[in-house]
Design a protein around this nucleic acid. Structure first.
Lengths: 183, 183
DNA sequence: CAGTATTGCTAGGTTGTCTAGTTATCAGAG
DNA sequence: CTCTGATAACTAGACAACCTAGCAATACTG
């Protein structure tokens, strides 16, 4: 976690005891990410399921609430896994009592996956509190602050999303020598 | 993994005129997380390795730069995996030429893992640009804005971290007993 | 009604993780 | 110095979750 200063920037705040605000921000991002990852791990363990199962359950609950239940196909595309994996995932979730397969009202070869009340309660008890706390923190911001944070997060998402890939997923040897020296 | 936030949000506050800023913030958080997840997936595929391998490589490079190289044991605890998994992980990374096992200077049963220059270049070329863009976005903030964002992120991390309240496990009877990743 | 597309499931194979046990080395007690 | 327990990394075997390929049932279309 060494946040070393950019040598090119030349500014260094060591004597003031304060580092450049930009570094503090990025470090806060990292800290949040770490905290979230840890939370996910705890959830995963507490519910005795894998990461994907939790995510699938969240999608299902969300869809249930929205009144647009999901089929295994929808779930597969949302999760980015294959149809076969979705079948086994639903087997797991069905066996553990979190979801149920219902026949599709109009398409007799399709299914509708519904989350059980137990799953709803369980997810709510583990993730609802977290969401509530996050919401509280977000509500504590003034409108201006919220706008600042939102804009920044969008900028970050854009920064992460913009991938200029001069090289495709070809072999690695091709780009072993181009160090952008951007550090 | 682009979803429906734009449509739903636009649909939503079109009549209201203003949506609660807190919701916008939380949605921006979600959007950022999705973008980052997608980026990780791209990186993972571009480098032809698993998620953990990339993370391990980042830890190793970071430690190398800090002058405090890691042993397999350190890596295992940082990654939260077992000693055996670490061995196979190092086998993979060694075989692909990303790291090398060196003898520990003082402890003859221990090892020191060093990342190769190729790995350094590779990670820099894939993640360096992203980091640079993030840094630019962070630097674009005024000191006040940065303070706001930092404080908010810390609040969020705290919200996510404090999850140790008693959960009702009443409905949980048929869960697995040996969850993956159990420490 | 025939032909194609789609849905979910099954079979077989790959990968990454785990637990348990082994070997080599270290550190401390006698 | 030697013996004993702890530690570091590795090996072996098993398991969970994913994938691709292919199948039966059903929907849609000409």
């Amino acid at each position: 976690m060494s946040a070393q200063p950019e040598t090119s920037s030349g500014y260094w705040y060591a004597t003031e005891g304060q580092r450049p605000p930009a570094l503090q921000v990025l470090e806060a991002m990292r800290a949040y990410r770490a905290a979230e990852t840890a939370m996910r791990l705890r959830t995963r363990e507490s519910m005795g399921m894998g990461e994907r199962d939790v995510l699938a359950l969240r999608y299902l609950l969300e869809a249930d609430r929205a009144g647009t239940p999901l089929s295994p196909r929808d779930l597969a595309s949302k999760l980015g896994i294959s149809s076969a994996s979705t079948t086994t995932l639903l087997d797991r979730l069905t066996r553990s009592g979190h979801v149920a397969r219902r026949p599709h009202p109009t398409d007799r070869r399709a299914l509708v996956i519904v989350a059980t009340d137990e799953a709803d309660c369980e997810v709510r008890s583990t993730l609802g509190a977290v969401h509530e706390r996050m919401m509280r923190a977000a509500r504590a911001l003034t409108a201006e602050e919220a706008a600042t944070v939102t804009a920044f997060l969008h900028a970050m998402a854009e920064a992460v999303e913009a991938v200029d890939e001069p090289q495709s997923k070809a072999r690695v040897e091709d780009r072993r020598h181009q160090g952008p020296g951007a550090a």
